[in-house]
Computed example of a mutant assay.
Amino acid sequence: MQIAQRSGVTITDGLPVFVEVEGHHAPTPFMVTPETLPGTPFSIAVVDAARLVGAPHADLHVHDDHDELYLVATPGLRFTVETEDDAIELRSPATISIPAGVKHRLICHEVEGDHCPFLGILVEKGTLPA
């Protein structure tokens, strides 16, 4: 990864960076973190849901210090957001807000097309509306 400033903009290349996230079965590819864009108060992972069809990519897990926002803008993904108390089946496009302290995971059932990127955005606890 390399960070440069030029013409008043900050550029980070050599992405993604892979981060071990508790409960996930493999390191998570992040495009934005406080390290990749110094001073940024959030992190953004980008995952291709087409590669996750058929098996959860994580166990039920919790972020105690961060709220999480799933943003699935690409149409054609059928998926479930599972918590300890519920399983919510959805079709994209959709946005899901998960408060800190809520055990959760995303399960992808089917994708129309070869790719379906979605964002997992971690922000400071209490940032997202309850």
Score class of each variant (00 low, 15 high):
Q5V: 10
R6M: 12
S7Q: 02
S7F: 01
S7G: 00
S7Y: 02
T10N: 09
I11V: 14
I11N: 01
D13L: 04
V19K: 09
V19F: 11
V19D: 15
E20P: 04
E22Q: 02
G23Q: 11
H25T: 04
H25W: 00
H25A: 01
H25Y: 05
P27S: 14
V32T: 07
P34E: 15
P38C: 11
P38V: 13
G39A: 11
P41Q: 14
P41C: 14
F42Y: 09
F42L: 11
S43H: 05
S43R: 05
I44L: 07
I44N: 03
I44Y: 03
V47Y: 00
V47L: 02
A50F: 04
L52N: 00
A55L: 03
A55I: 00
H57K: 01
D59N: 00
L60M: 01
H61D: 07
H61K: 01
H61A: 04
H63P: 06
D64H: 03
D64W: 08
D64P: 04
E68H: 06
L69E: 00
Y70L: 09
L71T: 00
L71G: 01
L71A: 03
P75W: 13
G76A: 10
F79D: 00
T83L: 00
D85Y: 07
D85G: 08
D86R: 04
A87W: 07
E89I: 09
E89H: 08
L90I: 00
R91P: 04
S92E: 06
P93L: 13
A94N: 08
P99M: 13
A100S: 09
V102H: 05
K103Y: 11
L106C: 08
H109S: 13
E110H: 02
E112T: 01
E112A: 07
E112L: 05
G113W: 13
G113M: 12
D114R: 10
D114M: 12
D114L: 13
D114W: 03
H115I: 13
H115V: 13
F118D: 14
L119V: 10
K125C: 08
G126F: 13
T127Q: 00
T127A: 12
